[in-house]
Computed example of a mutant assay.
Amino acid sequence: MSLRRIRLVNVCLLAAVIVFANSLVGGARASAWPEFPIPQGRSIQILKSGGLFRVYRVYRPRGLAGAAPLVVMLHGGFGNGAQAQRDYHWNATADAAGFVVAYPDGVLRAWNAGTCCGTPENFNVNDVAFLTNLVATIIRRTPIDPTRVYVTGMSNGAMMALRLGCQTTTFAAVAAVAGTLLTDCSGAHPTSVLQIHGTADAQVPYNGGPGAARQLNGLPRVDGPAIPSVNALWRSVDGCGAPTTDTSGVLTVETAVCPDDRHVQLISVAGAGHQWPGGQAKPLLERLIGLSPPSTALDATDTIWEFFAQHHL
């Protein structure tokens, strides 16, 4: 089956789910729905936000005691929550460290991160409202420490995570993998930020400017600032000192210490492309859309959690 036909099938399935959800609740507001505790293990949830029924997955490890941290994991363009849950092994890290993970779905597999991407950008879908509502809903339905709520994302999801850092005060720390900043950030509050980016990323170039796009597979052309300049912006927002730099093999880590125990960090992976380092390799998909296999120089998931665990509101 062609990629075009696969995408059409996915769109039709999503439309059917939305119509079915509307028929169940008769268009009732989300606040009118009964809210039950989120079960342990994996679950699929639906939240009405901005007139749309939005799907999200939650992984709540068994045996959590007390209020746990929450990580919101945002998939990349053409991905979804189920794919992010499979490919980035956050559930295993959550089991080991004791936190809850949410995997929301973007509208038609994308997020409105500002000047990207796809349908959410074209129709100005309010993903900032949806994701802040999602966090509030999870906090109402399961014991979560509101001072330890974090957001991370891959590619278009990373761009959305950075937008949330700029335009909300919900998250104690933000981590972006293979994404850049494509929205206004003039009103940002100080927030700890980690960026992980390959220096050979063709889709979201490390040095900024328009990325590669293929008409065949419909990848959006991202045109944003250089990754180091985004990091410098956050150092300015946070009032940080000058960063220290450490290079080991293909990894260069720049870390700035900031007031109130915040940090702004950039991990550059020399020679790495558009990928989640340490994620699940998918040779067929990588060939179809021209991506390189994930770097094994670091495990992005564990690295991000180590960064998150240092910070709270």
Rank of each mutant, 00 (worst) to 15 (best):
R287F: 03
L162E: 15
P39V: 13
R54T: 07
W276E: 09
A67N: 10
I227A: 07
G290L: 13
D184W: 02
Q280L: 14
D299K: 08
I38V: 15
Y88C: 02
V193F: 02
V204E: 06
N207D: 15
L13I: 13
D238P: 03
A30T: 05
S186D: 10
Q265V: 15
P294R: 07
S268E: 13
R54C: 07
D87Q: 13
D261R: 13
F36G: 06
L13M: 02
D87F: 09
D238N: 15
A65S: 15
S49L: 08
G273K: 00
G165E: 05
L298N: 10
Q40V: 11
C12G: 14
E286T: 10
W276C: 08
Y56L: 02
A65L: 13
A94G: 06
G179M: 08
H312Q: 14
W90Y: 10
A82M: 03
R54Y: 06
H312F: 05
G271E: 07
S31W: 01
G211H: 08
V250L: 06
W111N: 09
A21I: 05
Y56W: 05
G26H: 01
A270Q: 14
L8W: 09
A297H: 11
T191G: 00
M160Y: 03
L3N: 00
L219F: 07
G241L: 05
N156F: 04
V58G: 03
H312S: 14
G290W: 13
I46W: 15
F20K: 06
V100S: 00
N126A: 12
G179H: 06
A15D: 13
F20Q: 09
A270V: 10
A21H: 05
S248L: 08
A173Y: 05
F123C: 03
N112I: 10
L182V: 13
M1N: 08
A226P: 08
S229R: 09
V128R: 10
A188L: 06
P143R: 11
L284R: 11
A136L: 04
T119I: 15
A309P: 01
T183M: 01
M154Y: 09
